[in-house]
Design a protein around this nucleic acid. Sequence first.
DNA 1: TATTATTAATTAGTACACTATTTATTTGCT
DNA 2: AGCAAATAAATAGTGTACTAATTAATAATA
Lengths: 148, 148
Amino acid sequence: MDEGELLKIEDQLCFALYSTSRAITKEYAVLLETMGVTYPQYLALMVLWQRDGILVQDIAKGLEVDQATATPLVKRLEKLGFVTRKRSAADERRVEVYLTETGKELYKTALAVPHGLGCAIGVDQARAKKLIDELNNIKAFIAKKNEE
Amino acid sequence: MDEGELLKIEDQLCFALYSTSRAITKEYAVLLETMGVTYPQYLALMVLWQRDGILVQDIAKGLEVDQATATPLVKRLEKLGFVTRKRSAADERRVEVYLTETGKELYKTALAVPHGLGCAIGVDQARAKKLIDELNNIKAFIAKKNEE
DNA sequence: TATTATTAATTAGTACACTATTTATTTGCT
DNA sequence: AGCAAATAAATAGTGTACTAATTAATAATA
């Protein structure tokens, strides 16, 4: 690769990830419209459907975002009526997040989303699995490098 | 895959893309610190280094973002002293974006970034190429589907 | 030519996402 | 017990991204 090619935007892995990620998020938006949530809000609900009553920081960890990002996200879910927030009695610093009945109900609707998205982006399970593994390898490499 | 597994966040391609994209952007931030630009600003400069004097909308197209995202991005680059904005004489609606001398100088520093990032995320050229192709296929599928 | 449609950029408003800082609480240690 | 360190959330401030609406200029056409 000669020098002139070095800084072409379309040849860079990071740009491919950045733009593809946003393109897929837009496809999600269409599917999530009936549920009335955004993509990050949907991710937070997915974490809660797996385990209810967790802390704000558990949601942050699940989404791999900063706690300062999770706080307003949870507040918006509360305003939408999908979760409630409750100070922990055992430790007043903690805030436990619980699904409301409406929030639990939403799970049924959400079950249709993954298949819908698979169709929307034209990727089957097997191909998705391979890509996910590749991406997780990259994330693991970065994480390992940074923990030193 | 049984139903309980269906909505696990870590099994979803989109989440892998979303989180990996952000993880890599953070690695970029370290490399771009000396240049004093953010990752999207660096992308905009890459487009300008390829072709100077383009319109705001050309930058939007290059980055695959909305024009409404490109406008403030270019303004920030102007405030940083890397570009100037000039209304087109031929068509007053258009705004042409030109690199300043400082903006052109920055190219030399930027040449070191791709290799630095390759090391930071542990992905060599060959592996990157394969992943980029996969991601471009997905984007192409979505684009084709949406143009109908 | 006068009107309508289109185009380019911007603005308005919402929602992330980040770093750094602050507040309140709890732990650890002497 | 008393005080420093650590922890959990929240706040402050900046920079993306998006949709929808607005403004100004140009193109198209009846």
